[in-house]
Every structure is written in C-alpha cells, then in structure tokens.
C-alpha cells in the first residue's frame, strides 16, 4: 500500500486517527449520548478508509463503484441505527431521570 499517492496516504492516516479517537470516546464516555457520537466518528473513519481502498490499484482515477455503493448504503443504515439508539436513550432517561445520582435511583 505504500505506493499510493501522498493524498491517499494522508487520508488513510486520518481514517485510522478518526477510528482511534472514536474508540477512545466510546470507552471513556461518560454520557451515553457522547458514546453514540463516538460510534458515529468510528463509522466516519471506516467509511473514509473504504473510499481510499476503492482507489487501490486503479490507475485512471476512477474509484471502485461497488465499495462506493456499500458506503452509501452504510451511511443510511448508520443514521437509522443512530436514530434508534437515541430513541432508546430517550426512553431510558424517561424511565430513570436521575441517572447520575445513584442514590435516587429506584434500585432493583
């Protein structure tokens, strides 16, 4: 892969960096909404990586249409998954409003 153009190498580095940042945010948290944002950042990094891989080995500057179509599908699926996750989160907040004050939680 080292024979790619400097532009694509730069984007590979950025994609890996975005993946790492998203992973860090997902582990550290602490709010659930921020974890969902972090998952979206991981997704953005992976999509960017797929675009760079679509240029692999093609000389005339045309990208692999199969990978592009997969990413397009992935974008729409990602936003619907995010919407579902946020709906679950809203339900969770409604069920136990004082999430960060454990002493007020109706414990099991």
């Amino acid at each position: 892969m080292t024979d790619l153009s400097p532009q694509l190498l730069l984007y590979i580095g950025t994609a890996a960096g975005l993946f790492a940042i998203g992973l860090y945010g997902f582990i550290v948290g602490p709010q659930t909404l921020r974890r969902i944002l972090a998952l979206n950042i991981i997704g953005a990094g992976i999509f960017m990586l797929m675009v760079v891989l679509a240029y692999r080995g093609l000389a005339d500057g045309a990208a692999d249409p199969v990978l592009q179509a997969l990413i397009l599908t992935g974008l729409v699926v990602a936003v619907s998954a995010t919407a579902f996750a946020l709906a679950l989160l809203a339900r969770l907040k409604q069920a136990r409003p004082g999430q960060y004050r454990p002493e007020q939680e109706p414990g099991p």
Binding site: V52, A63, V79
Partner: peptide, 30 residues
C-alpha cells in the same frame, strides 16, 4: 476524494439529520 455521491449524502445525513437527531436528544436530557 472525488466521490460526489457520498458528499451529497453525507452533507444531508451526516451533518443535517444526525445533528437534528442529537439536538432533539439533547433537549430531552437534564
């Protein structure tokens, strides 16, 4: 990266819709 298909979708989805989603989730949070 010369993938205008993705740029069009991302501009509407990634920035617009996800942003609106997160804001409405934010409004629900204390």
């Amino acid at each position: 990266l010369a993938t205008p298909d993705l740029a069009l979708a991302e501009a509407a989805i990634g920035a617009g819709l996800t942003g609106a989603l997160c804001f409405s989730a934010l409004a629900r949070q204390q």
